[in-house]
Amino acid sequence: MKTAVLVFPGSNCDRDIAVALELLTGTAPAMVWHAETSLPDGLGLVVVPGGFSYGDYLRSGAIAARSPVMRAVVEAAGRGLPVLGVCNGFQVLTEAGLLPGALMRNAGLSFVCRDVPLTVGNAESVFTRLYTKGETVTFPVAHHDGNYFADADTLDRLESNGRVAFRYAEPVNGSTRDIAGILNDAGNVLGMMPHPERRIEAAHGGTDGRRLFEGLMELVGA
């Protein structure tokens, strides 16, 4: 599977995801600089990585969401290309309008950096198909602005359409309805605060993150 990772000034988990993707797919991802206006051909996945794009100026992810490459991502997502946003990448996807809601300062005001248990809320999407609904997985989080907010109508719609991919199984950041990750309507865009790319090898302390990528690879083909 051919993959691409966006790189903004201030991205820092681009290297983590690149290592994970190369290990799993056997091919290093294309690293796409934010100023590019198009994506490589034949991709099976685009990842918007974690970090502090543009220093998180204005709002987390706000400037990155308006960068040239994001226009190409929005267009590709509309055509059905799988797009994964992790941490700052989730913030970028909400700011770009690919996912509803917003990520605000953690309710406790502190940066939270630890492993957290998550409950799988959707096991049907291209990203979550190898998980079981209701299963608990453990991924690390490392964020200051992970407090998911959306109005009640949006939350109800997300829940009734099975678009909540992951929920925190314990209090982490004040997110409404414990939301840790959500899918778009079509199911090809996933944004999540926890880091699946940091649970790939046994040396990471667990391999719960592998299935997120392997499920997609099975569909797209090697």
Binding site: L58, R59, A62, R66, T94, E95, A102, F149, A150
Partner: peptide, 9 residues
């Protein structure tokens, strides 16, 4: 609307 404010919040 496009940048300075996030009208979701």
């Amino acid at each position: 609307r496009q940048l300075l404010a996030n009208t979701v919040i």
